[in-house]
């Protein structure tokens, strides 16, 4: 067995040092400097300007690509009318509830499968069978069961997001170091105590990785199901505005959803980094 020998003194190599030799070391150093936020994100600004210009200069039909400034104006109107906030809260409630259920049930299931041989023999093949299933196929059946409202979306997100969490929890818990388990037992810990003190924390990094996949899936399934059938929510609003030809407003909602998805991932990563700060 090899054990990583860390001195704790040397700083970890920066993001640039692992890269194969580049051509422009000066430029690269500038980019790898994280404080230089503006330079790093300037390509997005360039894209936004190109969008505005293409639309203003009639390079693209302003119907197909309304100017970004018009989209911004439409966004403010949507906020003022309350449409965006109302539909947004409804969407976030569905995603949050479905995801919370998926994490609780999926995480417990994964740990259970890792510590119990019979549970693994019974549930393992089913998890393996259902994991690769494209979960969007469940949209019609959740509607069939629970109708057009919140229930069907929550069920869909729960079913669609559970297995990545289960697999993460399972792999993490199964990989708990035998010596850690023995140490805890030699210090007098037993049964559930060992589970909670050793198995669950050992599973945490992989479990949280599974949750990140689930988070991305939750947004995909939320928007998909709301686009296909809904009377409320971001997806519904996008479809409704598109059908009425208010393309500026439609673009405004699309960008809002995309941004919330991005933001959720970044916030999640920050939380995880804090929770796992005991690692290297």
């Amino acid at each position: 067995m090899t054990v990583a020998f860390s001195t704790g003194r040397g700083k970890p190599p920066g993001p640039a040092s692992g890269r194969p030799d580049g051509k422009l070391p000066a430029l690269r150093r500038l980019i790898s400097n994280r404080s230089n936020f503006l330079l790093r994100y300037s390509p997005l600004l360039i894209l936004a300007l190109a969008w505005e210009a293409a639309s203003r200069l009639q390079l693209a039909s302003s119907l197909a690509l309304p100017p970004l400034t018009d989209v911004a104006r439409a966004w403010i109107e949507l906020i003022q009318s309350g449409d965006l906030v109302g539909n947004g809260l409804s969407s976030l409630y569905r995603a949050g509830a479905g995801l919370a259920l998926a994490i609780l049930v999926g995480g417990a299931l994964g740990v259970f499968m890792a510590v119990s041989r019979p549970a693994n023999a019974m549930l393992g093949p089913l998890v393996e069978l259902f994991y690769p299933m494209p979960k969007s196929a469940l949209i019609p059946v959740t509607v069939l069961w629970l109708g057009f409202g919140d229930g069907s979306k929550i069920l869909l997100i729960f079913l669609g997001c559970m297995l990545p969490v289960t697999i993460g929890a399972y792999n993490g818990a199964r990989g708990s170091d035998q010596h850690l388990l023995w140490s805890a037992r030699s210090m007098g810990a037993r049964g559930l105590r060992v589970m909670w003190d050793v198995v669950v924390p050992s599973a945490l990094p992989e479990l949280l990785n599974g949750v990140r996949t689930a988070l991305a899936l939750a947004f995909i399934l939320l928007v998909s199901s709301e686009l296909v059938v809904a009377r409320q929510g971001f997806g519904y609003l996008i479809g409704y505005l598109g059908a009425n030809g208010s393309y500026e407003a439609m673009f405004a909602v699309v960008l809002t959803v995309a941004f919330i998805g991005f933001l959720a991932d970044r916030v999640y990563q920050a939380v995880v980094e804090r929770a796992l700060r005991w690692r290297e």
Partner: peptide, 19 residues
């Protein structure tokens, strides 16, 4: 491309379907 990829990856691109 780096900012485009890192911002675009976590976005639910499916929202662009009507577009």
């Amino acid at each position: 491309f780096d900012p485009i990829i890192s911002v675009g990856f976590p976005m639910p691109k499916i929202a662009f379907l009507p577009v």
